[in-house]
Design a protein around this nucleic acid. Structure first.
Length: 792
DNA sequence: ACGTTTTGTCATAAA
DNA sequence: TTTTTATGACAAAAC
């Protein structure tokens, strides 16, 4: 228990931090923004290697330490900012959805357990990423069974909150019970906690049976949300309560709103009671005390979820698709979990009265059956497999302008958005709902399996996103029109190919080959270099001849050793040139001059194998430098052979003015000058090639990232589309119900009901019109019948 | 020994 | 015009 308490405390602290950050949302936002570049570098690796080869630009701008305008860093930076903003703007544009997920994500380590038990098989059919998730969730399930929900991902603190909250908050709960709970409730809480504590790991089972019994016993007595609240689990509270309330008591849908918002407030109140930090008025729970009691007395009765989900777990294949989709979505939501989500939570939390009011307003109009089931469905499923489909077979009873009614829609939107956003956590509620709901409704209730494990996010996401077929199917399932589907298909097909650039360059290798052969055929080194000119391919024979020649060059030794030191062992010589210091910091490129001693010793060891006989000739003259010389580049050897009096680094890296000065200082012959120019050209080109390759690689990486982002965005948009579709269907359903109700209540002058075969209701900007059916084609020229205000 | 990746080089275009 | 940079293509080197 101490273990659990520790986790709970940590979770509470993190939770508190999260809550406090809600108040300063912008700060967190900027924090995230500031965090971004390093994160980006962590992901893609440092790209500073690009800057170091921009010698000329760096030098010309006299600012060797800033980011060069051409640098890929800048591209990265802006691209990342842009992508992030895109993602964020998606969130902003969204219907206030997925708000609850943040909270629920934090508190469902044992929901993962339940999810595992029911969804493992179906997930295992998915791609590898999902498989990984299954494993992970199973692991966490085993851990969760032990009571210590030590999850490996970063949110584990908050996660354990849900698992352990009731135990640890006992004292707090008692403290706060003084103002909100009756003694009876406190006793119940104590009993439950003691049972939980005593039973330890197995308490879920106990919880399930006992509380199920208890709640059933309570139902006839209380018959309100308290009964529902009793049996719901700590983390499943939001939806569960709403669903049960709606089911158990026969009241209107406002229960749902109440339950949903209050259950959030339960968390907040519990937090306040635990950590009595400054009273934040917007977190004050204003609901009935029973809600609070429900939150405090309900321990994580995960086995409820398991047991209840068991009958539902024979998921058929369409459900697998849904599960897959929801896995993806939940993962994405976790990934994109952002501040505005939580802020939206607060917003929702802030105005439960508004919600209640609006819901009540809409609910008072009618008191018939349909809205309840509608609300249940809203709460149950993310998408509409369970909804009695009303969109397609909607009668011509209504005008398409649903918005003109203007009465139901806002409420419905809010309802559906707030509920359907619980993708991550609906499974508990869903399955419990499945227990209570009649089979036709819950049989297709989605069994959300959300092993919320951020670690394999990218891979899973990628693979899942790449598993476009499921998306397509889902899209079709969700009522995509044919052209939309085909468009989607086109999009998917167009994902292939990263053709970076068109090919050009007629590539004539004959030139170099001929020169190569000529170099090989030539016997004298000086003749070789002069004949080669700028092309100068050096073959082994050439190198050998050059080295053989080196021994013969008189007065060469001192300068050669000096050159060697300058070239290889004294890079500090170039400290005056800032970009050359950068060269030494580069780990991948530009290392030939400053390779480490170990490498060089390896190389010398290897080189001793190769041309031993040639070495034997020269080791008598230069024992130590020979291998060093052998592993030097061809240009260096050539320079040495041509008796170039300065280093290749200077030749290559000096700016053109200094380079010309250097050339002017020494009196060099034509061959030497040509060689020096070639060395400079080749050296620069070498670095340019390295730079180019790195840039190319980075472009590919960036494109990959862009593809991932776009896939994420696409999935998000699809999800939004589904939510909107759901909302529209629900709205239609509700309007239909209202219309039926209204129509049934209409009476003509003699008090007789209107015949549905003769009249129909038409919605216009002025209200609802009762139109005779034979006039339907005349487009309601005359509202010859009475015009009824809908709110009558 | 052979296949793959990395690196150096050249040709060429563009800045 | 000259120099530098970028990049495709090729081959050698390295792995």
């Amino acid at each position: 228990m101490l273990y659990l308490k520790k986790y709970f405390t940590e979770g509470l602290i993190q939770f508190t931090i999260l809550l406090s950050l809600i108040g300063v949302r912008l700060d967190l936002d900027t924090y995230l923004n500031n965090q971004l570049p390093p994160l980006h570098e962590i992901i893609l690796g440092p790209s500073s290697a690009y800057t170091q080869t921009q010698f000329h630009n760096l030098r010309n701008t006299l600012d060797g330490y800033g980011i060069h305008p051409k640098s890929v860093d800048l591209d990265h930076f802006f691209a990342t900012r842009r992508l992030l903003n895109q993602v964020r703007s998606l969130d902003h544009l969204r219907v206030p959805s997925t708000e609850l997920s943040a909270w629920l994500v934090h508190r469902d380590p044992e929901t993962v357990v339940s999810a595992t038990s029911q969804s493992g098989p179906s997930i295992a059919l998915d791609n590898g990423g999902s498989l990984e998730d299954v494993n992970n969730s199973e692991a966490s399930a085993m851990r969760g069974a032990g009571g210590a929900s030590e999850t490996t991902y970063s949110l584990n603190g908050e996660d354990s909150l849900g698992a352990v909250a009731p135990e640890d908050s006992q004292e707090q709960g008692e403290r706060e019970s003084s103002d909100d709970l009756s003694k009876e409730d406190i006793e119940i809480i104590d009993i439950l906690w003691r049972q939980d504590i005593d039973l330890g790991a197995g308490r879920e089972v106990f919880n399930y049976s006992s509380r199920q019994k208890e709640s059933e016993a309570d139902k006839p007595n209380e018959e309100n949300e308290e009964a529902g609240g009793r049996e719901e689990s700590w983390r499943n509270g939001l939806n569960l309560r709403a669903v049960q309330n709606l089911h158990v008591d026969g009241e209107t849908g406002e229960r749902l709103q109440e339950g949903t918002s209050l259950s959030l407030q339960e968390c907040l109140r519990l937090l306040e009671a635990t950590f009595p930090f400054g009273e934040e008025p917007e977190f004050q729970a204003t609901g009935p005390t029973s809600q609070l009691r429900a939150s405090t007395e309900e321990t994580p009765s995960t086995s409820q979820g398991i047991a209840l989900q068991a009958p539902l777990s024979q998921s058929n294949t369409p459900l697998d698709l849904e599960q897959q989709w929801q896995d993806i979505m939940s993962i994405m939501e976790l990934q994109d979990m952002e501040v505005n989500n939580t802020a939206a939570n607060v917003t929702m939390n802030n105005d439960p009265n508004n919600n209640n009011a609006s819901t009540t307003e809409s609910a008072t109009i009618e008191s018939f059956e349909l809205p309840r089931s509608t609300l249940i469905n809203q709460d149950v499923s993310l998408h509409q497999a369970s909804l009695p489909s009303c969109s397609q077979d909607f009668p011509t009873l209504f005008n398409p302008e649903l918005d003109s009614t203007g009465v139901q829609r806002p409420t419905l939107v809010r309802l559906s958005s707030s509920n359907s956003s619980n993708i991550n956590s609906t499974y508990g509620a869903t399955n419990l709902t499945g227990l209570f709901l009649p089979p036709p409704l819950n049989s297709t209730t989605n069994l959300t399996t959300t092993p919320v494990l951020p670690d394999p996010f990218s891979s899973l996401l990628e693979e899942s996103m790449l598993d476009e077929i499921s998306l397509l199917d889902l899209a079709m399932e969700e009522g995509f029109s044919q052209d939309q589907a085909s468009q989607l298909e086109d999009e998917l097909d167009s994902d292939s190919g990263l053709s970076l650039d068109s090919s050009h360059s007629p590539a004539s290798p004959s030139n170099s080959e001929t020169s190569c052969s000529s170099a090989a055929s030539s016997s004298s080194t000086s003749a070789t270099f002069s004949e080669e000119g700028a092309v100068g391919y050096s073959t082994d024979s050439e190198a050998a001849s050059a080295e053989a020649e080196e021994g013969a060059v008189g007065g060469y030794q001192p300068e050669y050793s000096k050159l060697c030191r300058m070239s290889y062992q004294d890079p500090s010589q170039f400290h005056g040139i800032p970009q050359l210091e950068n060269v030494n910091h580069n780990h991948t490129y530009n290392q030939p001059p400053a390779s480490s001693y170990s490498e060089r010793s390896q190389l010398s060891a290897s080189c001793s194998k190769k041309g031993r006989d040639k070495q034997m000739q020269q080791t008598k003259l230069q024992p130590p430098q020979d291998c060093v010389d052998r592993q030097s580049s061809r240009d260096e050897r050539r320079a040495r052979a041509m008796d170039i009096p300065f280093s290749n680094e200077k030749i290559i890296n000096l700016p053109v003015e200094e380079f010309n000065e250097l050339l002017a200082k020494h009196h060099l012959n034509e061959d030497q000058l040509a060689l020096i120019r070639d060395i400079r050209r080749r050296g620069k080109n070498k670095m340019a090639a390295q730079n180019c390759r790195k840039r190319k690689l980075d472009t590919i990486l960036k494109l990959e990232q862009g593809v991932q982002d776009l896939q994420r965005e696409k999935a998000q948009l699809l999800k939004e589309k589904m939510e909107y579709g759901k909302c529209i269907r629900q709205t239609k359903q509700k309007v239909q119900s209202l219309s039926q109700e209204l129509f049934a209540q209409l009476r003509d002058e003699e008090g007789r009901p209107y015949s549905a075969s003769e009249y129909f209701l038409q919605y216009g900007p002025d209200g609802v019109l009762l139109m005779p059916r034979n006039m339907s084609t005349e487009q309601s020229n005359k509202p010859d019948k009475k015009q009824k205000d809908k709110k009558k």
